[in-house]
Design a protein around this nucleic acid. Structure first.
Lengths: 126, 126
DNA sequence: CACAATTACTACGACAGGTAAAGTACTTTT
DNA sequence: AAAAGTACTTTACCTGTCGTAGTAATTGTG
C-alpha cells in the first residue's frame, strides 16, 4: 500500500473514493445514527457503516473507538458490558437524550453545510 | 467570546452555524473554485467566500494562508507579486492545470460524499 | 491632526481528530 | 495446527484549524 499524504488519503482503492477529511466532521453523527436503532457495540457498528455506505466508507477501528470515548465523555452515549459468557467481552453503547439532541443539531447543520459547499462545486459530468 | 471546544466551534454566532470540522476537507476546493474565475489574492478570496456563502462560512485568515501554502507546495496554485506601488504588496495566486484536475476530482468526490453522509442523516424538519 | 478601522499579510504555538502499528484475547473455520 | 474472524486497547504521530500577536500601509472619522 502506497504512502499517501492525509489530504489525499483514500478509503477504498477503487474508483469510489472518499477522503477521510471530509467525513471527519460526521463520524460522531454516523455512529449516533446507528445507535438510534438500538444498543450496539464497536464491531457491529463498524460493519453497519460499511454495509449502509455500500463499502464506500469504512471507518478505521481506532477512529471508531476514539469516537466512542469522545461521545461518552460528552455524555452523548452510555456504555455498559454485555453479559456474553463466551468470546471477548463486548462494550455496548446506547444513545442518551443529549446525544439525540446533538444528532438532531448535526442533521440540521448538514443541510446548511451541503448548501454552502455546493456553491463552490461545479458539475463536470453529464 | 466564550471558549468552545473545537468540535463544537462555531462560525457565526446566530442560528446559522457551520462547524469548521465539516468544511475542513473542502477549504482547498473552495479556494480553487474562486481561482477558476481568475487570479486573486488572500483578502479578496476571503471576502468572496463570505459573500458567496452569504456569511454562513467565514474562513479564518490563518486557515486561508496556510491553505495557500499547502496548495502551492502541491503545485495546485502559483503565486506572484502584484505590481501595486501603493499599500502593502499583495501576493496573487493563479490555479495550475494540476490544480484544475484536483478541483475536478474533488467535485466528483463531493457528489459521492454527499450521498454517503445523507444515508446517516434524518430529516426532522417539515 | 490624531486615532481607529480597514487592507494585506506572516509567524508561532496549541489542540483535536484521524490513523498506522502493534498487541491482547477468545472463537470459528479450514 | 494454522488462519481467519471477532472485539477491542494502547501508543505515538501527522495534519489542518485556529487563537494570539505582530508588521505595514491606506483610508475614514472626530
Amino acid at each position: 500500500m502506497e504512502r499517501v499524504p492525509s489530504t489525499l488519503s483514500i478509503v477504498q482503492g477503487g474508483t469510489d473514493l472518499i477522503s477521510s477529511d471530509v467525513i471527519r466532521g460526521y463520524n460522531d453523527t454516523i455512529i449516533l445514527y446507528l445507535l438510534l436503532e438500538g444498543e450496539s457495540y464497536g464491531y457491529e457498528i463498524s460493519k453497519n457503516i460499511k454495509e449502509l455506505s455500500e463499502e464506500k466508507y469504512i471507518m478505521k477501528e481506532t477512529t471508531l473507538y476514539s469516537a466512542f470515548n469522545r461521545l461518552e465523555a460528552n455524555g452523548f452515549i452510555e456504555s455498559f458490558y454485555g453479559d456474553e459468557t463466551f468470546g471477548k467481552r463486548r462494550t455496548y453503547y446506547r444513545i442518551t437524550p443529549s446525544g439525540l439532541a446533538y444528532y438532531k443539531e448535526k442533521c440540521e447543520e448538514w443541510q446548511l453545510t451541503k448548501d454552502v459547499i455546493n456553491r463552490f462545486i461545479k458539475e463536470w459530468s453529464i
